[in-house]
Design a protein around this nucleic acid. Sequence first.
DNA 1: CTTTTGTTTAACAATTTTGTCAAACTCAAG
DNA 2: CTTGAGTTTGACAAAATTGTTAAACAAAAG
Lengths: 195, 195
Amino acid sequence: MTTRDTGTEQLIKNTAKHLFFAEGKLHATTQEIADAAGVNRTLVNYYFRSRDSLFDQVFNEAQEELVSTLDEVIESDMPFKQKIENLISVFLNEAMQYPYRELFIITEMNRKDVIDSRKARVNKVTAFLDQIQSEMDKGTIKKMNPRHFTLNLFSLMAYPLVTAPLNKILFSMNDDEYSILLEERKQLIFETIFP
Amino acid sequence: MTTRDTGTEQLIKNTAKHLFFAEGKLHATTQEIADAAGVNRTLVNYYFRSRDSLFDQVFNEAQEELVSTLDEVIESDMPFKQKIENLISVFLNEAMQYPYRELFIITEMNRKDVIDSRKARVNKVTAFLDQIQSEMDKGTIKKMNPRHFTLNLFSLMAYPLVTAPLNKILFSMNDDEYSILLEERKQLIFETIFP
DNA sequence: CTTTTGTTTAACAATTTTGTCAAACTCAAG
DNA sequence: CTTGAGTTTGACAAAATTGTTAAACAAAAG
């Protein structure tokens, strides 16, 4: 069974991801996905068997993409400050393309009550928390539960992207103005974290 | 047409809100809502005509609830610091009950491409931004675009609630431990905002 | 007690969404 | 050019979800 690879399978998957992660259309139907990809809906079944199967695949890849992006940064052995600076830059750039990716993961977790509990992840996170703790001991950053530090960091990065449509209205800003605001945040978050 | 008011209409609506806002079941069906409420599904149509109509009503009320809660706080004429302290307390308490309410609003906005643009809101927000600006002029808080200040504040409050299921796994915490962490944040956020 | 009116229910119908299949198609291999 | 395997398509079937109707039910009004 030699595949001819017309790119259709990838096209469908990428289009689905774009609808979910970029446009926040969290309950798109197979028809909407097929239309957006410009292909016949039957091909969704041909390549992915079922809607659920496509969702599962996208869900798993979303987790892996997110995780591998973060791992690459937090496992590198840069100096701490530089690592955080890098983390902010990398995370925000990805999140600006895919603001709703985490949201998709969470809502899918809520839909089916799947508990993942992957021990592998936890170890890496623990290592990161330990490093934060040691920086606090050194006095580089304010002392607190390292989990709070992490929550603060990701909150400041992610939330303004998820709530963008709402914020644009409340702040009377258009897309370009809001983009500029987000770009400014890279520096601002860094300064907020390292007072 | 004198209504007999068996409380069923409210029960259905409240159950829907609980599924959406508290459990994050953002695409619950009418059957799931009826089951959760312990009533016959037909009653959803009897009281709300259609599924869309129920959604619209819940959507509008969600906005109003959120808005009125915030207005009550930011329009009061307490001293600024106290107002923020109050805001944190009120917002977090509500958000702990309904962590996904904002999310529901945003995903619904994305589903149908509805642009609200209610001018009334904007004025109140502007007034709040002005007050923040004047505090910065006084030197009470760090100088920055007041929008950043606002984004920071709401990010720190809301994001850890939305991402709770994910964070519990990554941080290896159970529900109780995570609740304690969230409770600690009230004080922590205040200190982060007023260094 | 009977009537009236609003409420609830179950059966049915309509719609929407998903899944299947055989035929048509395309392109590389022989 | 023909063959053959993977690909694409449209028509159809199945399933899931939503909407409608008439009849049963319950409680207040007469």
